[in-house]
Design a protein around this nucleic acid. Structure first.
Lengths: 200, 200, 200, 200
DNA sequence: AGCTAATCGAGACGGTACGTCACGTCTTTAG
DNA sequence: CTAAAGACGTGACGTACCGTCTCGATTAGCT
């Protein structure tokens, strides 16, 4: 009988939207993802619960938006990997920066929450990958292609797989905390992987 | 005034323990981890809730035990990686088997649940690593050391890092479902990683 | 800075007013008073909620107006009780008509809703009494005074109390549905009450 | 799938039951029936909401039980109307007592709430009548029958209707507050009604 | 083999959060 | 420039589970 009713996004309150995203980030940092509740977000944001349910289907979804907003504030148009001509140096610098980001408390809590949710919830996972992860990975593809053309990498190699050799190990250590995630580790991974990627 | 009392494990009902672990595995497969509840496990197992709370501190902990039991049934003493002398062939065979396991529905749901929980819950994550993951990884270390001694791998390389070059990419694809996890991918990862690991 | 603003009743939309009253009557019949909501009335009437809040302070108040409109349509100037000179016959005819009205589905739902609200909400109750009930009761007073003057009723009796002996029992059966409300009952009440009212 | 599950009344907490009934009576007196909420009852009683929902289907139902408990405490086995041989005196004394009760703040709020709910909700109304009202009314029937046998009342009269002539007017004034409910009014009603009831 | 104490299935309890509904207010937009 | 449409903060709804707590009724290990 009563249709689900899609809300009118032109009437949306930007004020409330920001307050919700900010509150979500704050709370996930303070209490962790498991204890993060929609009610707490609403209370902290000074917003009715319905205003959250009107625009997002789940708390994971709120957090994804909050994380994207966080990224946009920070990124400020950094849509390229450095290309100094020295592939090894460039990759080391990028992976070291990634290590720093993953170790930074601001990114850590929401990123873990989203990654964990994505592991278990395919739909959210797909969004996380397409909105957050894949754009990053494409930068590697581009940089590796450039290296192949410049003769710094074996042209027979699939850059997609090469990139996973670089990123996979970092992700592995970060997600399950098997061993500490350091600059030295990033360097070691780059060195080892490049021995496989280098022209024969 | 009565002490918190630790339960007497000699009197523990093996019947109930099995029923609980089985129910947990069934339910995590049917409804997913988020919707898995202690009450549902108790009901399915025909057991009082207290019997679960008496022996486990959380649902993640129940699931970890259930997953370990699942592994023990299957493993049957396979505590070695094959060593035919051909490192590449051996690794391909092992990683292909891992791919099959990760793609199998029986392992997938509980393994994802535990991995996700471990991402976000450091304590459970540590248990997962030490009980499930690390024993597996040590097999790689052992095999790689053997290869180094036999001259099939560069002795200057840290086997721990080498192994992560093999396992990290697989884990990455599995956890976030970026791209399909296939035998071909396993082969490609082994080939590329071995170019880095091989003696110079 | 704008004053609370009293609405300008000359600009009021008669179209909306009727649609709201009609919708209120329809809905109270369909779903009952408890489930009657301002939002549903507005939706059914094709009217904004604010148009209701502008003109009425509560849903009970809307319903009171709707009920009054209903009465005006029906009454068409029947502002007298019949006076054939036979008090007993006149009262029986009036009370039988009242029984029919109370048993009619159209009047029943809104009348019950208002009566119930009036029981518990003194303000609305006072309005209900002064606008709906008291005018009716005054007709009885007038008819009984006429009978006293004509010698058909004891002049020593307070007509106000006499009337309540007639109306009270009907109201009692109707409100709490203790026993069926029939013409026979109306007749029996009139006969018994008149034995008390008659001249000695 | 999941059966509605009827709770086991032998395990019921008497402590909680009393606390809930007491809280309901207190709150209905303080804030009125409309503003009475299950949540407030639970909070005041120091009880989980589910404990209310487990045992009662609605707030009206809680209040009915609370009112019955109130009655039981007060009544202490007064299961008879006085019979001094003087019908008029006995009825006046009883109706005066009823007037006092209806005017007492302790009874007023819950009684109004239940009466109002019963007007609009047939199911609750039937319970209210059979548990609260009808037992009272039967006492009148009994007393009137005794009077008929003793020659103090016309044996041709239906006691059920006679009683409604006594009780109906009181109820009418109480429910809609048309005019004040006083001892004088009770006396006047008895006198007038008895003129109809008396032997010819 | 019988006693006795702990574990067991069951589920009521005080709570927290869920996701929904309606309230009454306020703002935006179309006629 | 009125009013429909409807987003908003608020708060109660009734439900689902949480983790704790009592209940008898089995067990299982010790006398």
């Amino acid at each position: 009988m009563t249709t689900p009713r899609t809300p009118d996004s032109t009437r949306r309150s930007e004020r409330s939207r920001r307050a919700i995203l900010d509150a979500a980030l704050e709370l996930v940092g303070e209490t962790g993802y498991q204890k993060l509740t929609i009610e707490a977000i609403a209370a902290r944001a000074g917003v009715g619960k319905q205003t959250i349910y009107r625009w997002w289907p789940s708390k994971a979804s709120v957090l994804l938006d909050a994380f994207l907003a966080l990224g946009e504030d920070a990124a400020q148009g950094e849509y390229e990997l450095p290309d100094t001509g020295d592939l090894e140096a460039d990759l080391k610098s990028v992976l070291r920066a990634t290590v720093d980001e993953l170790n930074s408390p601001v990114y850590d809590a929401p990123a873990r929450a989203l990654a964990a949710e994505g592991v278990v919830n395919a739909e959210l996972g797909a969004q996380f990958v397409s909105l957050v992860l894949e754009p990053q990975l494409q930068l590697y593809v581009k940089r590796l292609r450039a290296a192949q053309e410049a003769g710094g990498a074996d042209p027979g190699i699939d850059p997609r797989i090469a990139l996973e050799l670089l990123v996979g190990p970092l992700a592995h250590r970060w997600m399950l905390r098997t061993l500490p995630l350091t600059h030295e580790y990033a360097d070691a991974v780059v060195e080892l992987a490049l021995r496989g990627i280098a022209p024969r």
